[in-house]
Design a protein around this nucleic acid. Structure first.
Lengths: 339, 339
DNA sequence: CTGAAAGCGCTAACAC
DNA sequence: GTGTTAGCGCTTTCAG
């Protein structure tokens, strides 16, 4: 008599418990179509009493609709992607769509796998970091027939739509600001970038703008792995030992920049006169540092927001922008002399 | 003749393109059962040529198996949960299970909603932060019939299984170490904790152990929102202005502790003699600080690992531990005098 | 306002 | 090795 096996509950169980047809139960549970208050009440009561949780698998198969948006990013521990997620969530919360995150660890093969896995759930849209993807990945996205927004970068051509900043331009503008500040012996400290295309583009834009200003990069150093703050210290020390005459250090992200800043302060360097420094991202962390590090905001939250808005619009069949290029501003902070 | 509509591809399309039955195509694509190399090849070729991506919705409905593990955590921007995720992923990567993350923002109602949404996809297991949940949430987890592991905390009774540390004990042990170091005028700085049960338990354990040692907490202050590093600075300054005779500051997390440390160093305090300090979590960031902050490792990666291992075992029908209580160790760093 | 029938795209279970 | 049949639990569509 009693349901002592552990078969999950189905619509049919609710139907039998309430004496209402499965179809009408379904309508009540989805708030679709007109149902009398009396039946609605009976159904809701029965569903709650049983502890029924609908089976979205079956629902999705029948309706051919999945209210999921695949969000594919390189890393969670970066401090940059959580903010993008916040922007996305904020927008999607006002709809029936839900973000689902996949992480690629900056590996193209893993990106391909994650994309494949996520597409096999037939989501309503894809938001994916970067414009560089394997041919197979690009093919999958094109073939999916759903809206795809590539984010964070604007130097390239998207499969479908893109929202981001130009990292080449970001590097260029920072170089120009540094030169305008009168610095000439400039070092670069960054991540090893074979797979971080955005860092690479900033580096390229940076060196090109320096060259245009008649300045050659005096020194550079790349790291991988480990605590970014600690790496920033170590690399700064190493570089200044090697090239003591540097008057500026450009870090490819704020965390290593913060490490460098802390080390320089301890050593008693005169910032920004004897030596200047700048990072990239505009992370909240910087606000607690002894000096405000010069940086450039990567517009993370806005990128998330705009990308989600495009997905939402397209899901509703509305037209939407296909290329949103944001313009980040330099913050001079206390570590970069103004012109 | 050509497939110029945008209907997604089905097994049937691959079957027709390869001249092999749907069933055999399915077997090939899943590596199930014996298939001759010749047919396997035909199928793989056709699938790739078409760009076929299987429909997991249909597969899951038919097989009653969903290879997803729901991971429900309060926040991504915390620096603590990404590490837990890493532990989980590491273990699941060796299986066919995949983590799916849901975020609750420390809100019980949101937790309930997220849990409901995730359970409606019929995952193979649930890993959820904390032991405090609404009655409805607990009921859902119990009724789901799938393995549920509550993580991060061990002060309480799990619905099914738990992996964590005792935060009461963590607070207690830190208090004992501080007293053993000879400190007596102790201040507490933390997050506003109505909803962060683990921070609350640390606070409780801490004050109780102080009381047992005959010491009353000399001052305390709570914050919410904003940059943790900056808040740490501000609160430290405020507290020492108000209570200049304090000889120890216990911070409820490492980020605000780091902020406090930076401020104290700037002010020229003699650490750890004139004043000591300690945080909680053991975050990687600390390694880049001018001094190593005393802290206690929250065993984040191991918690993730052990929780995932339990899910994997149970999914395979094997027995598994139901209560894993990890014992975090104090790191004295450079900011807490040893006994 | 409510119900009955017919699938959604795949896989379990069984033939051959 | 390979194919056939019958659903999985819902929603769509069409009758009343």
């Amino acid at each position: 008599m009693s349901r002592n096996d552990h078969r999950p509950l189905t619509l049919r169980d609710v139907s039998e418990a309430s004496g209402v047809s499965e179809m009408t139960v379904s309508r009540v549970l989805r708030n679709r179509g007109d149902v009398s208050d009396a039946t609605r009440d009976k159904v809701l009561r029965a569903a709650k009493a049983l502890g029924y949780v609908p089976n979205k698998i079956a629902g999705a198969l029948a309706s051919q609709r999945v209210n999921l948006v695949a969000v594919i990013i390189p890393s969670l521990s970066n401090m940059v992607f959580p903010e993008v997620m916040t922007g996305i969530s904020r927008v999607l919360e006002g709809t029936d769509l839900q973000p689902v995150v996949g992480v690629t660890d900056y590996l193209p093969e893993k990106e391909e796998k994650v994309l494949y896995e996520m597409l096999s759930w037939r989501p309503s849209g894809v938001i994916i970091a970067g414009l560089e993807h394997s041919d197979a990945s690009r093919a999958m996205m094109r073939a999916s027939g759903i809206p795809v927004v590539e984010i964070m970068d604007a130097d390239g051509t998207p499969v479908d739509a893109m929202v981001g900043i130009s990292h080449r331009r970001a590097g260029r503008e920072m170089a120009e600001a540094i030169l305008a500040g009168g610095y000439r012996r400039i070092g670069f400290l960054g991540t090893q970038m074979p797979l971080d295309h955005r860092a690479r583009k900033r580096f390229e834009g940076f060196t090109q703008a320096l060259a245009k200003g008649g300045v050659e990069m005096a020194d550079h150093e790349f790291y991988s792995g480990g605590s970014a703050l600690a790496k920033g210290r170590e690399m700064t020390q190493a570089m200044l030992t090697r090239s003591p005459d540097l008057d500026f250090l450009y870090f490819s992200n704020d965390m290593i920049g913060a490490g460098g800043l802390l080390w320089l302060l301890e050593q008693g360097y005169d910032i920004p006169n004897c030596i200047g420094l700048a990072g990239f991202n505009g992370v909240e962390l910087l606000q607690g540092l002894p000096r405000r590090l010069a940086t450039m905001d990567a517009c993370r939250a806005e990128i998330g927001r705009r990308a989600a808005e495009i997905i939402v619009a397209r899901t509703r069949g509305e037209a939407a922008e296909t290329s949103v290029i944001l313009k980040p501003q330099i913050s001079y902070g206390d570590t970069l002399r103004r012109p």
